[in-house]
Design a protein around this nucleic acid. Structure first.
Lengths: 199, 199
DNA sequence: CCGATACGCAACCGTATCGTTTCGTATCAG
DNA sequence: CTGATACGAAACGATACGGTTGCGTATCGG
């Protein structure tokens, strides 16, 4: 990642070791470790790897974490493209399901907690994990505005914040275990229809 | 806080030292420290206090952090009570203003990051910093349902998640500096009116 | 086979923190 | 004044970690 010698000969770097290191890093984060508490020794021990093998590849802990976060590209759900409502539900339901997984939750915690510390870590996370979903959602909302399903004066960024923000809220402070299966649907319906009375 | 000896005589504990320790703790958090990285020595040094003075009062770091968070009771804004819209804007505008303050932002980061680690810290924060606002907002929405301003079938908790969640989103991933002054107003209007086209 | 490189492992030193103890001083009750 | 307790400062041993080095082994190219 950092250096790409490949000078001439010698034993090639083990792909397996690299995977194990990344996995161990994410594992430790999933167990509640913050970036600061992550110790290279703990990572090496967990990965069944010598410390040297880590230092050979990454200059410091932050670089390692950044690369670890880079492996988090969750696939986007397929979007039917029939209605704005269905597509939004599909997008938000990914978030609902992730909220039940400790690993995804802890990674999110770490990334959010790092916003006021390491720009590199938080920006990397935002770009890799959040931005693709935001692009998809922006397209869905934009299409809705274009075809008249949504208000012509809709502030798309604000609408995304309403929808995503509600899911984040429930992920963080919702019920203990899994979130209710119909949560995404209800969030979308409330957001689309609004809170005011129509009589 | 932890022990209340007050046996008979002797020099009384300095109220000033206690304040200074709590302040130093919050200061360090505001500078980006996580709970794990907080060192008692750094706190003592920052507070101009001996380590013994800290250990005399708190058995461990977590207890100290819990007590520090207990000092965060921000006052609620006055609510006119005229319209649901105005009251919601007043409530959310507190969040907008706090998003511009590094201290409030970092404390929020720490508290959110701690949800999967220390129940005590995160619950304390939720109860002291979040719950009072939630009570106020719940009352505003409940009143709106009762007097017909809001949909009779409104899910109040879900409505709160939409509104608060959007503000949290912008706090975390919005523009660098202060948030736009009309943000709360726009969030409330989009949430109340909904995203769908009306005609 | 040989040279080069990567591997896991262990040892090392320097630093940081923890929690405790000791010191001399300051401030209370009686 | 006396005794009791808190104070800030300093030092302590113990532990953990970082980053480096050396070792013997494993695996590549030529």
């Amino acid at each position: 990642m950092t250096t790409q010698h490949q000078a001439r000969a010698g034993r090639p770097r083990s792909e397996k070791a690299e995977k194990a290191i990344i996995e161990a890093t994410l594992d430790l984060i999933a167990e509640g470790m913050g970036v600061a508490e992550l110790s290279i020794e703990a990572i090496a021990s967990r990965a069944g790897v010598g410390k040297t093998t880590i230092y050979r590849r990454w200059a410091n802990k932050e670089d390692l974490v950044v690369d670890a976060l880079a492996t988090l590209r969750e696939p986007l759900p397929p979007l039917a493209g029939e209605s704005v409502r269905d597509d939004l539900i599909a997008l938000l339901d990914v978030v609902r399901r992730e909220a039940g997984q400790r690993r995804a939750r802890c990674v999110m915690n770490v990334a959010m907690g790092e916003t006021d510390r390491s720009k590199r870590v938080s920006e990397r996370f935002f770009k890799l994990a959040l931005e693709p979903r935001r692009v998809a959602m922006r397209r869905v909302l934009g299409r809705g505005v274009a075809n008249g399903e949504l208000r012509p004066d809709l502030d798309v960024e604000l609408g995304m914040a309403l929808l995503s923000g509600a899911m984040i809220w429930f992920s963080k402070w919702g019920p203990e275990g899994d979130l209710p299966e119909d949560l995404a649907e209800r969030v979308v319906d409330h957001a689309l229809e609004g809170l005011v009375s129509r009589r």
